[in-house]
Design a protein around this nucleic acid. Sequence first.
DNA 1: CCCTCAAACTAGCGGTGTAAGTTTTCATCC
DNA 2: GGATGAAAACTTACACCGCTAGTTTGAGGG
Lengths: 221, 221
Amino acid sequence: MPRPRQALLTRDRIVATALALIDADGLASLSTRRLAAALGVQGPSLYNHFATKGAILDAVADSVTATVDTGCIARHDWREALRRWAWSYREALAAHPNVVPYLAQGPGRRPAALAMADAVYGGLVRAGWPPARATHIGAALRYFVAGSALGSFARGFVEDPELYAAHYPHLTQAHRLAGHQRSVDEGAFALGLDALLHGLAAEYERTVGPLAPLEPTGRAE
Amino acid sequence: MPRPRQALLTRDRIVATALALIDADGLASLSTRRLAAALGVQGPSLYNHFATKGAILDAVADSVTATVDTGCIARHDWREALRRWAWSYREALAAHPNVVPYLAQGPGRRPAALAMADAVYGGLVRAGWPPARATHIGAALRYFVAGSALGSFARGFVEDPELYAAHYPHLTQAHRLAGHQRSVDEGAFALGLDALLHGLAAEYERTVGPLAPLEPTGRAE
DNA sequence: CCCTCAAACTAGCGGTGTAAGTTTTCATCC
DNA sequence: GGATGAAAACTTACACCGCTAGTTTGAGGG
């Protein structure tokens, strides 16, 4: 079946199908042949649309990053903006936990990741942070969100009481964590984010100037 | 060459060689055959000592985690303890950036990672934090350290000015980041960690009680 | 001395990413 | 309107991957 009258593949269709397969079966089990099969096509046909498997994964990762809301950054005080952005970022990753390990390896040349970095940096500078500080803050928050996504959605502890009880005196309850993983994750994220923002606010007042009072916030979550 | 008079392989030798290869050539290019070749042996011989390649990687990851200093936790006020632990943790990861992507996927069943979680949790509870809060704090700090290791040591931005200038108005200096990567990383880490600890101290005073004054610290770094 | 186990081997299976070359269709230009 | 060239599918094939199975032989214990 050479050169069908209507092209069977498009970049968008490939990316969407790849994301669905990764969501369903995990990152490791996505192969070019399996992806092609899901698209009703033979393996190497993909290379008419992407140069390499990595390019496909980049596009998938970018399509996830693109769902992060960065509009909030221009619309709110920097503290509220960072909070909303961080939650939205986290939400985007949580929706596709299996791509996080790939996504976490830096913005690279993926346009959506770069656009996000750009928006955050711009917002902080506009708020009065010195450029170098803005870079650090953006990076620190990315660290926290990415780390939270990695360390949590991907399994953490294992459901096996005896494994822990024997050797780790304080972890006798750790196996319970496996069950409450989601709430532990959210609690740790909320606590860490609040602490980070609190500390940044203090740093701002120390080095930049007095803070405007926060507008009443819509969602604390 | 069957059953040599002196065994050619030991678990320790395999782990050390695997770590060296990963450091040198990256995680992706470690194969059982290559590892075996570096050990002067054929591929499948490894399976006399480890059940699976993943088990080897677990052991490698654990050997890295084992270099983190957790002794400081018992010897200092919780704030100073967390600071030293986080820096030591970061240092351990920075020494072997290529294993971070594997390591970041949670403690799993790796004993050193579990011992570390145990020590941190125990120290926080001893300092007066409620158990649930202690869990959250340990997780949040792990998120931050792991995220920082991932997002930074592993490449981040690319050295190609034109790539950025065109589309991202605030990132016109971003290509410089590639050169100053190390200092940006350290700055972001220091800032984020200080902010986190500052925020946690405020949370402590709000929900637990007054804080003892900090002993004079040895290293601010 | 023999028996068993341990630790190396060889052979090979099914799977991987991707390069190379083939075929047919569509779009375009003389 | 027929030739031309690109596009998008195909088949074939290579080198490598993790791992299994079965084999060989030295070492150590009864």
